[in-house]
């Protein structure tokens, strides 16, 4: 197995919680993993991206080559488009639809959504609403992870196990909430992909 993932968002949106779950899942299965993160200056409200590569064979480059990503997971709609050149011909864009507007020249939302909806392989999801409906407001990133799950070449149970490890110390309630969020995202993607 080999999966290349681009994780996109804005500094402070916590995209690394998605990466951490996948990271733990990879280690549990003795897969190789490389995860290049954005630290430092860009974290102050700038565009941030993480390259995540999982494989059962050793991985050379920390960065995903252009045109090789199986999936772009973006927690912000405009950011999902910034990295399109990394996506493979058959790859999926999984993006949250809620804009994060902290710049004056943010494009028209309708324009962004039109472009997103015209992509050949896309899941556009209101992860914040789904998380809110579950009373799991802080788990919107896990909803995103769930929505990307069908395209990761990873069994859902592997991600469940990753979540149990990450949130285990915070108690069963928190684990359950995140498992629910994961499944809600997954179901949405299966119905809308």
């Amino acid at each position: 197995m080999k999966t290349d993932i681009i994780l996109a968002g804005v500094g402070g949106q916590g995209i690394l919680s998605i990466a951490a779950t996948l990271g733990i899942a990879a280690l549990e299965n003795n897969w190789y993993l490389k995860q290049a993160e954005t630290h430092g200056m860009s974290q102050r409200g700038g565009a941030v991206v993480s390259h995540l590569r999982i494989s059962d064979k050793p991985i050379a480059s920390d960065l995903v080559p252009l045109g090789k990503a199986n999936v772009i997971i973006s927690v912000e709609p405009m950011e999902s488009l910034r990295y399109l050149d990394y996506l493979s011909e058959t790859g999926y864009v999984v993006t949250n639809v809620k804009p994060f507007v902290n710049i004056s020249d943010y494009p028209e939302e309708a324009k962004i959504m039109e472009y997103i909806n015209n992509l050949p392989n896309v899941v556009a999801i209101d992860a914040d609403k789904i998380a809110n409906d579950l009373n799991a407001r802080r788990s919107s990133n896990i909803v995103m992870l769930g929505a990307a799950a069908p395209f990761l070449n990873v069994e859902l149970s592997v991600l469940e196990s990753g979540l149990r490890q990450i949130f285990g110390s915070k108690g069963d309630d928190v684990v359950e909430m995140n498992l629910k969020a994961l499944h809600a995202g997954y179901n949405f993607a299966m119905e809308n992909k």
């Binding site: 860009s42 409200g45 080559p65 405009m78 488009l81 050149d85």
Partner: peptide, 27 residues
Amino acid sequence: GAALGYPTHSGESKVPDFIANRPPSMC
């Protein structure tokens, strides 16, 4: 890859030109 003669991509960008830069900013 390009230097070795094994280009990884066609070179044509799919990123729409309306994407705005998002530089870091003060909190």
